[in-house]
Design a protein around this nucleic acid. Sequence first.
DNA 1: GATATAAATTGGTCGGTCCAATTTTGCGCG
DNA 2: CGCGCAAAATTGGACCGACCAATTTATATC
Lengths: 233, 233
Amino acid sequence: METDVRPARKYEKVVGAIKDAISRGELAYGDALPPERAMIDQFGVSRGSLREAFSVLELLGLIESKPGSGRFVRSPHAFPEGSSAGAVPLESSAVLELMEARRILDPAIASEAARRSSPSDMTRIRRILTSTRENLDDLTHRARSDFDFHMALASATQNFLFVNIVRMEFNLIMATHESIYGLLEDKCAFADEHEALYEAITVHDANRASAAASLHIDRIYRTLLGAFAMFQP
Amino acid sequence: METDVRPARKYEKVVGAIKDAISRGELAYGDALPPERAMIDQFGVSRGSLREAFSVLELLGLIESKPGSGRFVRSPHAFPEGSSAGAVPLESSAVLELMEARRILDPAIASEAARRSSPSDMTRIRRILTSTRENLDDLTHRARSDFDFHMALASATQNFLFVNIVRMEFNLIMATHESIYGLLEDKCAFADEHEALYEAITVHDANRASAAASLHIDRIYRTLLGAFAMFQP
DNA sequence: GATATAAATTGGTCGGTCCAATTTTGCGCG
DNA sequence: CGCGCAAAATTGGACCGACCAATTTATATC
């Protein structure tokens, strides 16, 4: 019964807590966070872990550090003020923002992968795809497969900048909405689209690969859009 | 006489040293780096600083960490083995790889900025452009302007993923080739292209913005290609 | 030869020190 | 009383050395 593959780092707890506080409205735009030394007691973590949490929150665009002054909440997006039962607006806005970027980035990466992929890249991707089919019902397995697939695609571009971008994409997915895969119900479409993408890359058809990636991410985007719409007026 | 704006962090020294060692061939693909505890003495830095250096080198795709085993050199690109007078191959291959990615990413970002930019974004970019013109001969000022301009462009997309990508691009530029701006002699073209890009974004012409960005980065890419070709047989 | 054990290595965390930037306080002076 | 400037307190930034855990590799033992 392995519930969590990840070792649950301390800083993640802090990130979650602050993120939730912003979602609930306890921390609003412009507000100052408590000073480091106070938060150390508050969360019971060391300064190093705290700083790591801050660096993530800064990367997410949620807070801003001003040396000598303090840390302040930055509005990442403009989202409705008086939203009841909180937690949704921030999460959804961040995830949609991420997906909007992926609608542009992923087709470009797929196209580049189609141009430069080597046979060994393709066998690796092939292996990942079969592993994906094996256990489509397990949520964490699906998430893991998705990550592996897109990382393999990125490394097939032979360009580490794309690898880093995909790594960043999935870091953000995990940081902002771990349960996102629960919303994507259509498991078969998930696997089918990955396979279509694989086929296009195998024959080095950049245009078809780009189109396949577009279809894939567009469907996900629309699905999430629909799911989030149910939470908001 | 301010030679370095940046405070010269400890880990940067380590990154440079290891990068140079790889360039010189002292460390080749597959070689194991000395263990952390040994490098602490070797470089006279703490473990924290060392780990920070490793994280950068890992991001650059130069090394790979295997828990319980050690850290190993990864070939980032295949580049000529017996290259004399070293230092060039790694640097140039990494920079060209970065620029190849930018040829794809930057037009996409420019196009998105054209679609979503607000008036306040444009005034900020306008200010950066006039500042750029003011001191075109100073190398560090030009580098700073370039960074500011592209960061402003990224934030005009209203999407923090693009902001992070541009931040990453310039982190890599600084990490791999700080003197890169010395190779880009045509100062006027530099400023002109930025202005053309600005114009396209102001009128929200996504296609023109994308084209302008392509022209800009393509010229830089060709210039660097030419400059590096002189170092290699 | 197989297995248990020990050693070596990286990963994560902690609690400090010192420094730079900023803000706040307080004092002197007009 | 009000203003301005300097000292002090507050805050984040960088760094250090130590500790223990997880994992891999080497070694010893049967």
